[in-house]
């Protein structure tokens, strides 16, 4: 853990703690595995450059996810980026149940920022206030996004904690 001292960082341990979480967040937002991998690499390079002083693993996770999410948003602003529907292709094999499949496809059709909020809340467990801080959006906006998502994706989000 980088606590701001000059102790060597256990890079491999950091990766094991965070790489999949970062990858899943990037995949949720970008919908493309190759780009998600690139986004994770970019975020980790920023970590290596900036070496932020972080209190604990929870803060470390939040910092890395925030950088990942913001990096994805930057990529999405580049319109020459060709979005490939790999997420849908993955969903076809992962969701044989028709109802779930349809909702997962509907998830992919949501705006990117909605998917970011959905992932950070329903998968990572962040509160709307925390998501707002990570994404730079107003908390009310985050609540709206999550409310819309619950209306559309009730089945696949069923069982998760309500806001």
């Amino acid at each position: 853990m980088n606590d701001g001292s000059r102790r060597p960082m256990d890079w491999e341990a950091l990766l094991f703690r965070n790489e999949n979480h970062m990858y899943r967040a990037a995949l949720a937002i970008l919908g493309n595995r190759e780009e998600a991998r690139d986004a994770v690499q970019d975020a980790l390079l920023k970590y290596l450059e900036k070496r932020p002083a972080l209190k604990d693993e929870e803060h470390e996770r939040a910092w890395l996810l925030r950088v990942t999410v913001n990096g994805c948003k930057s990529r999405l602003r580049s319109p020459w980026r060709k979005r490939r529907v790999e997420l849908c292709a993955a969903l076809e094999t992962a969701a044989p149940e028709e109802a779930d499949h349809e909702e997962l496809l509907a998830l992919e059709a949501l705006p990117d920022q909605d998917r970011a909020a959905i992932h950070l809340h329903y998968y990572e467990g962040y509160t709307t206030a925390e998501i707002a801080a990570m994404t730079g959006e107003a908390e009310g906006t985050v609540r709206s996004r999550l409310h819309r998502a619950r209306q559309k994706l009730r089945r696949i989000l069923e069982g998760e904690d309500a806001i």
């Binding site: 960082m9 890079w11 491999e12 990766l15 790489e19 999949n20 990858y23 899943r24 995949l27 949720a28 991998r37 994770v40 690499q41 980790l44 390079l45 290596l48 993955a90 969903l91 992962a94 969701a95 149940e97 779930d100 997962l104 998830l107 959905i118 992932h119 329903y122 998968y123 994706l153 696949i156 989000l157 069923e158 069982g159 998760e160």
Partner: peptide
């Protein structure tokens, strides 16, 4: 299948992990 179930299946592949591991050493 829930959203969580689906996302739990999404992991960094070995090749990508190796590349990420190599970042810190350069």
């Amino acid at each position: 299948m829930t959203y969580r179930d689906y996302m739990d299946r999404q992991c960094v592949d070995e090749e990508t992990h190796a590349r990420l591991l190599a970042l810190e050493g350069r």
